[in-house]
């Protein structure tokens, strides 16, 4: 395959991936403010987050300034994302499988970062031993990531197919997602073992991409891996696998959103309450014109009259 095709493929896919991901993120972020629906524990509650307390415990809380920790939510999320605290706590038998799987993803992502750095180092003609260090690390990350991820994906596939707890909820989509991601890992592992120096090849490939080198060529095993990975990346943002984005919102915007009204929210709320309602049940009394405020004001009795 000529270099130019690689450029179109890689940049095209990355572009689509980013665009769709950003679009979906913005779409969630721009949803209207909702009613409060917080859920303990809320780590940003200073001194109380540990046992799940909130500022509502304070006597006349509205007379006090809220004590919010910035660090605690971060720590909470880091432990949740990288160590899968929730699964560890509540679903221990699943943890090794899903941890291997997710660790695979994180390690491979880290490997790509190291490869990117080493390709930049190649371009900038850094001393070879520096480049070497990065490639050595990338190589270890790669093999660890591919193996863990691959094993994790296979284990999860078996678990899904065999566990009577999970089986009723399976769809072809769920299997397909696992198979596709599994293929990414396994093709990666194949390339790693097939190539003499996987990390060097990888950084050369990336260098070829960013320098727009049309003479770019790569070995078959690596190109197979890259094509599968690009397919995956193209598919990813359309699926529920972008839960890494959604998770930010479920935690920060729902569970931990215990904010009283402020000026900005008040403005937004005024707009939301002024929207017309069209629910059909008689007791609502909506006609497609009356808004939330009208409906709330009205006595139910008058409506019947």
């Amino acid at each position: 395959m000529s270099g130019i095709v690689w450029h179109i493929l890689a940049f095209g896919v990355i572009g689509i991936f980013l665009a769709v991901t950003v679009y979906r993120t913005v779409a969630i972020a721009r949803l209207p403010v909702h009613l409060r629906w917080e859920l303990a524990p809320i780590p940003h509650e200073k001194g109380k987050g540990k046992y799940g307390g909130s500022y509502l415990e304070e006597y006349e809380w509205w007379t006090k300034t809220r004590q919010r920790s910035r660090i605690a939510p971060l720590v909470y999320m880091v432990v949740e994302i990288f160590l899968l605290r929730g699964i560890w706590k509540r679903n221990r038998p699943l943890w090794p499988l899903t941890f291997a799987f997710h660790a695979g993803i994180y390690l491979v992502t880290a490997m790509l970062l190291f490869s990117l750095v080493s390709s930049i180092l190649i371009i900038t003609e850094a001393p070879p031993y520096v480049i070497n260090v990065f490639q050595e690390i990338a190589s270890v990350l790669a093999v660890a990531g591919y193996l863990m991820g691959g094993l994790g994906a296979i284990a999860l596939l078996f678990k899904r197919a065999l566990d009577s707890n999970l089986r009723p909820f399976n769809t072809t989509t769920k299997y397909f997602n696992l198979v596709l991601l599994g293929a990414v890992f396994i093709s990666g592992a194949y390339a790693w073992f097939n190539l003499g120096d996987f990390a060097a090849e990888m950084s050369l490939f990336i260098r070829g991409l960013i320098t727009l080198d049309t003479g770019l060529t790569i070995a078959f095993s690596l190109s197979l891996h890259i094509i599968i990975s690009l397919l995956f990346l193209l598919y990813l943002p359309w699926t529920d696998m972008i839960h890494f984005v959604a998770k930010y919102f479920t935690y920060h915007e729902v569970r931990w959103n215990d904010a009283p009204q402020d000026e900005k929210m008040k403005r937004e709320l005024r707009g939301l309450l002024a929207q017309p309602v069209s629910w059909s049940a008689a007791h609502v009394g909506a006609d497609g014109k009356k808004n939330w405020v009208d409906l709330t004001k009205k006595k139910t009795k008058d409506e019947e009259a």
Partner: peptide, 15 residues
């Protein structure tokens, strides 16, 4: 917002 998030992102892990 909470509804859409809950509809779209269940991983079916049964935890």
């Amino acid at each position: 917002q909470p509804l859409l998030l809950s509809l779209d992102y269940c991983a079916q892990c049964q935890t």
